[in-house]
Design a protein around this nucleic acid. Structure first.
Length: 648
RNA sequence: GCCGGGGUAGCUCAGAGGUAGAGCGCAUCCUUGGUAAGGAUGAGGUCACGAGUUCAAAUCUCGUUCUCGGCUCCA
């Protein structure tokens, strides 16, 4: 007998070699049905793998991340089995579970070109195979056996993987006629998979290296119940409606034009109102935090970027230089604002008393992103950063960092964005050659970031090796409608540029010292921020940001003059108001303006004209009764003021 | 940049060798209305661009460009 310990510390005796499934059965029939995998002493195992000795275990179901991972990993194998059936000779690379679903990277026989149209038949085959409820059998194999097996299949991809494995640690998983090299774990049989959707086909470099050949990647997602697939597909449909590209078009916020060029957004009047509101708000916040606002040109002499080091590092992949009539003179579109700000720092001697100096600019920069990477407003070639560079003394670093975190908190609060994550990126001490600056400075900077985050009560994840070459950073991430995470706010410590630009300040002892620089952008870029804001709000922005805040709806043409009076009064009170005086019935006007996401509709007819009132209707909420124009204006003004309040 | 989809009216999309379609929007007229779609009529297209095949190309081929889903990259 062996002793099995459960997460609640309870203990039970079982036969040696008991399986996870048998343990689950011993607890309840329901658990036995729902369990998908089990962790044994911290390692996730198959449910039908015998447990040889005393162990701590935990059973996982669909409700657990690990349960889903196992489910989707097995699904990847099921898909491979189906594809192997239709396209014998296909070579299978790597097929993991991902956040939602799974993929498999494959090399198809040369005459096969898989397209979307092939996916339904593969889905159907997968369901057929799952109905067979084939057991999934784990088997230890020797390295030689593994090599022989895949040599016979001529699968170079698997052979490459096997070569990197140690003899004695290699396992095969088999279901029906399909055998795969895999470390598992897997479901007990394929019958658990009841609903299948293959979502897309994409190219993917073998092992993520663009020097390798490109394989075909098929993405899919599966569920234990058909209903869950239906719900998931409905979720995707909903998400599509929140896509910022779609809403941006509907609400006339921004456009792209092929004639202007890829990745170069143009802000339409309504989008410009939204963006200007954001900028004005941040300017007010920054003023309170002691920033000074500057403006710098869109181009700079190539020598500037040679000094900063950007030219050497990124010049070749950037927009090409602009030549002037003067021989040898070249300019570059500004890829970042920091070199200009360094020059602003350097134009006169600075005293330790001047620090910290906080230079802010809504600086538009241009970067030649690869064509395949462009995506709506989230990844563009011309964008405006809400940039600032803080030049400070070492003893001020942590405090400055904390103040930037405060600003980011203020921003997210005003935007009603509560669902963000924060990531600290540190250097990898094992590869010091990738970083510039002294070890002492790095340690100081990293400590400052870690401590500042902790003292601000920020929940962070820490990633080693993700730091920029010039310093560690703290990034804030927010998800879009379909769950893709985008980096918005960023705070980075930089010892490099002050060095390269020879920046100095005079200390109290009359000696020269080098300031530390912090790059920071709470929004990240106006473009990306607005994109994420649109997806988070589905275009129903907080009132203060909404381009058209109020629309006046005259009941009939007879009341157009009164409507005009109302709108003039409101506009004069700084409330953005338009009129819908189309020759339509009121029901129609209400419907159309509801769909346009205008927060307030003011219905005006005979009653209102007689009383100097407006009948207030709120978007999504309906009729809220009538009040005088003045009272309405005060209400809106107060509301907006409250929303724009800077408090922390 | 790479792999695979696309580009047809302002928008959403159908059409797949033989002179271009729908719904919404827009214009005009009728209607003058009370909280989510009133009616009639009409205008609107170099079918992304350029070459080729063909008696004939929106439709087939090639190139370019933009765009979508990924990969790679990301200052």
């Amino acid at each position: 007998m062996i002793t099995i310990t459960f997460p609640d510390k309870s203990v039970r005796e079982f036969q040696e070699g008991v399986t996870g499934l048998q343990i689950a059965e011993g607890i309840s029939g329901r658990l036995a049905r729902e369990a998908l995998c089990i962790s044994v002493n911290g390692e996730v195992w198959d449910l039908n793998r015998p447990i040889p000795e005393d162990s701590q275990v935990e059973l996982y179901t669909w409700n657990d991340r690990k349960g889903k991972e196992t489910f989707w990993h097995t699904s990847a194998h099921l898909m491979a089995e189906a594809i192997d059936f239709y396209y014998p000779g296909t070579k299978f690379g790597i097929g993991p579970s991902i956040e939602t679903g799974f993929y498999y990277d494959m090399e198809f026989p040369e005459d096969i070109q898989l397209t979307d149209k092939d996916l339904p038949k593969i889905e159907k085959k997968m369901l057929e195979l799952s109905k067979l409820k084939n057991s999934i059998v784990r088997r230890d194999v020797s390295k030689k056996e593994a090599i022989d097996f895949f040599t016979k299949k001529n699968d170079q991809l698997k052979l490459e993987l096997i070569n990197e494995l140690e003899d004695g640690t290699i396992t095969f998983y088999q279901q029906g006629n399909y055998t795969d090299l895999c470390k598992g774990p897997h479901l007990p049989n394929t019958g658990y998979i009841k609903a299948v959707k293959l979502t897309s086909i994409a190219g993917a470099y073998w092992r993520g290296d663009e020097k390798n050949k490109m394989l075909t990647r098929v993405y899919g997602v599966t569920f234990p119940k058909q209903k869950e697939l239906t719900e998931y597909l409905a979720f995707l449909e909903e998400a599509k409606k929140r896509d910022h590209r779609k809403i941006g078009k509907e609400m006339e916020l921004f456009i792209f034009s092929g004639k202007v060029g890829a990745g170069l957004p143009m802000w339409l009047p309504k989008g410009t109102i939204l963006r200007t509101q954001l900028e004005d708000f941040l300017k007010r916040v920054q003023k309170r935090f002691g920033y000074v606002q500057v403006i710098t040109p869109h181009i700079g002499n190539v020598e500037l970027y040679k000094t900063s080091g950007h030219y050497q590092k990124y010049g070749a992949d950037s927009f090409q230089t602009i030549k002037t009539p003067v021989k040898g003179e070249e300019y570059m579109l500004k890829p970042m604002n920091c070199p200009h700000h360094c020059e602003i720092y350097a134009y006169k001697p600075r005293s330790y008393k001047d620090l910290p100096l906080r230079i802010a600019e809504f600086g538009t920069v241009y970067r030649y992103e690869q064509s395949g990477e462009l995506h709506g407003l989230t990844r563009v070639r011309g964008f405006t950063q809400d940039d600032a560079h803080l030049f400070c003394r070492p003893d001020q670093l942590k405090d400055e960092f904390k103040k930037v975190i405060d600003i980011i908190f203020i921003i997210f609060k005003a935007m009603e964005m509560n669902d963000y994550t924060a990531q600290i990126s540190l250097r990898d001490p094992k590869t010091p050659e990738k970083y510039i600056g002294t070890k002492e400075n790095w340690e100081k900077a990293e400590r400052a970031i870690v401590e500042a985050s902790a003292e601000k009560g920020l929940k962070t994840t820490t990633v080693i090796g993700e730091a920029a070459f010039y310093g560690p950073k703290l990034d804030f991430m927010v998800k879009d409608a379909i769950g893709r995470s985008w980096q918005l706010g960023t705070i980075q410590v930089d010892y490099n540029l002050p060095e390269r630009f020879g920046l100095e300040y005079i200390g109290a002892d009359d000696k020269r010292y080098r300031p530390i620089m912090i790059h920071r952008a709470p929004f990240g870029s106006m473009e990306r921020f607005v994109a994420v804001l649109i997806e988070n709000t589905a275009g129903k922005f907080p009132l203060w940001l909404t381009p058209d805040q109020v629309v006046v709806l005259p009941i009939s043409e007879k009341f157009n003059d009164y409507a005009k009076k109302v709108s003039e009064f409101l506009n004069n009170s700084d409330i953005r108001t338009i009129i819908d005086d189309r020759d339509e019935k009121i029901g129609r006007k209400i419907r159309d303006n509801e769909l346009k996401r205008i927060p307030y509709m003011l219905v005006v007819g005979e009653k209102e004209v007689n009383n100097g009132e407006v009948s207030v209707r709120r978007q999504g909420k309906g009729d809220e009764g009538s009040m005088t124009i003045e009272k309405f204006a005060t209400m809106i003004t107060d509301l907006v003021k409250e929303q724009q309040k800077i408090d922390y």
